[in-house]
C-alpha cells in the first residue's frame, strides 16, 4: 500500500492521539465506569467484590437526606452555598481586577504574576497558610483585629463563619486563573468600538455595560461553568482547613465530595460513596447544561 504524505501525517497524528487516549481511558473513563458498577453493589473493599443490590445505595442516600442532622443533606446544601457564594464573588472580583490591570502600564507584569501565583500553589499549602491566618487568638487576622480594638472572631471554629471563610480562600486561590482569562477576553475587544462609542457621547459606564460586558459574554459563560464545576467539587480546602473534624464544626462546611471520601475511605461504605459520586456527576451535568443554555446568548455587532 502506498501512503501519500498527507495520509501519513494523519496516521501519525492518530498514532500520537491514541497514546494519550489510553491515558484518558484508563485513568478517567475506566474508573468512572467502575464507580457505576460499585454504586449498584454492596462492595467490600477488602475483597474487591460485592453482591448486586440494585438501587439500594441510592435509596439509602435518599432516606439519609431526610434524617435529622443528616450529613448528606448538609453536604448538598453546603456545596450549593459554596457555589452561590464563590462563583459570583469570583467573577465580579476577577473582572474588576482585570479592568484595573488593563488600565496600568507600569508594573503590570508584576501585578499579573502576583495575582496568578496562588493558582499555581498547592491547595494543601494554601490551606495551611490560611489556617494560621485564621487561627484563634494568635492568628494574624485576629491579632490585627485585637490591635484595632475589635473583637476576635472564631472563623473556622464557628458553624456560622467557617463556610464563608473557606469559600473566600477558594475564591482567592483561583482568582488569578479567572483574571488571566478575563484579560485575554478584554484584549480581544477591538479598541474601535470604544472610540466609536466615545464619539457618540457614551460615558465609561455606558461603554462598560453596552460593549465590554456583552462582548465578554463567552468568557463569562466559560468561567461561570468552569468555576461552578470547581466549587461543586470542593474538597481539598475543606479537608485541610477543618482539620480536627473534617467538614465541621457541626457539619457546617462538609461537601458532597468530602462525604464521598469519608464514606468510602474512612467507613469503607464503597457502594454508598460510589452512588454519591454518580449523583454528584448528574448534578454537575444538569447544572452545566442549564448554565450554558441560560448564559450563552449570541452577541453580534
Amino acid at each position: 500500500m502506498k501512503l501519500t504524505l498527507h495520509r501519513r501525517q494523519i496516521l501519525w497524528a492518530y498514532a500520537f492521539l491514541s497514546v494519550s487516549l489510553v491515558f484518558f481511558v484508563v485513568i478517567r473513563w475506566y474508573p468512572a465506569v467502575l464507580a457505576l458498577n460499585i454504586s449498584v453493589r454492596d462492595w467490600n473493599v477488602f475483597q474487591g467484590s460485592g453482591p448486586w443490590v440494585g438501587a439500594a445505595n441510592f435509596q439509602a442516600i435518599w432516606e439519609d437526606l431526610f434524617k435529622p442532622r443528616s450529613a448528606v443533606r448538609a453536604a448538598f446544601l453546603n456545596t450549593f452555598k459554596y457555589v452561590l457564594l464563590g462563583v459570583p464573588l469570583q467573577l465580579v472580583l476577577a473582572l474588576g481586577i482585570s479592568l484595573l490591570l488593563m488600565q496600568i502600564r507600569r508594573l503590570s507584569g508584576f501585578f499579573r504574576a502576583a495575582y496568578f501565583i496562588p493558582y499555581v500553589t498547592s491547595f494543601v499549602a494554601v490551606a495551611f497558610v490560611w489556617n494560621w491566618l485564621y487561627a484563634p487568638q494568635a492568628g494574624l487576622i485576629n491579632q490585627t483585629l485585637t490591635a484595632l480594638g475589635l473583637p476576635t472572631q472564631p472563623f473556622l471554629r464557628s458553624p456560622q463563619q467557617a463556610l464563608p471563610s473557606i469559600a473566600l480562600v477558594a475564591v482567592w486561590r483561583s482568582l488569578g486563573f479567572a483574571i488571566i482569562i478575563f484579560l485575554a477576553g478584554l484584549q480581544q475587544i477591538p479598541e474601535m468600538y470604544y472610540e466609536a462609542a466615545q464619539i457618540d457621547g457614551a460615558n465609561r459606564w455606558q461603554s462598560f455595560w453596552r460593549i465590554t460586558l456583552p462582548l465578554l459574554n463567552p468568557v463569562i459563560v466559560y468561567l461561570a461553568v468552569l468555576q461552578t464545576i470547581q466549587f461543586l467539587r470542593m474538597f481539598d480546602l475543606v479537608q485541610n482547613m477543618s482539620t480536627d473534624n473534617a467538614g465541621g464544626p457541626l457539619k457546617s462546611t462538609t461537601t458532597v465530595v468530602l462525604e464521598v471520601y469519608k464514606e468510602g475511605f474512612s467507613s469503607y461504605n464503597m457502594g454508598y460513596a460510589a452512588a454519591l459520586t454518580i449523583i454528584l456527576f448528574a448534578v454537575i451535568l444538569l447544572i452545566t447544561l442549564v448554565q450554558m443554555r441560560l448564559l450563552s446568548r449570541r452577541v453580534e455587532y
Binding site: 501519513r8 496516521l11 501519525w12 498514532a15 500520537f16 491514541s18 497514546v19 487516549l21 489510553v22 481511558v25 484508563v26 475506566y30 475483597q47 474487591g48 467484590s49
Partner: peptide
C-alpha cells in the same frame, strides 16, 4: 508507526487487566 499503535494497545490491555486481577483471586 505500527509500533506506536501497538504500544498504545498494549498499555490499554495491561492497564485494564491489572486492577481487575485481585477480584477473581479473592473469590
Amino acid at each position: 508507526l505500527l509500533f506506536t499503535f501497538l504500544l498504545a494497545a498494549l498499555m490499554l490491555v495491561a492497564a485494564c487487566t491489572a486492577p481487575a486481577a485481585p477480584a477473581p483471586a479473592a473469590e
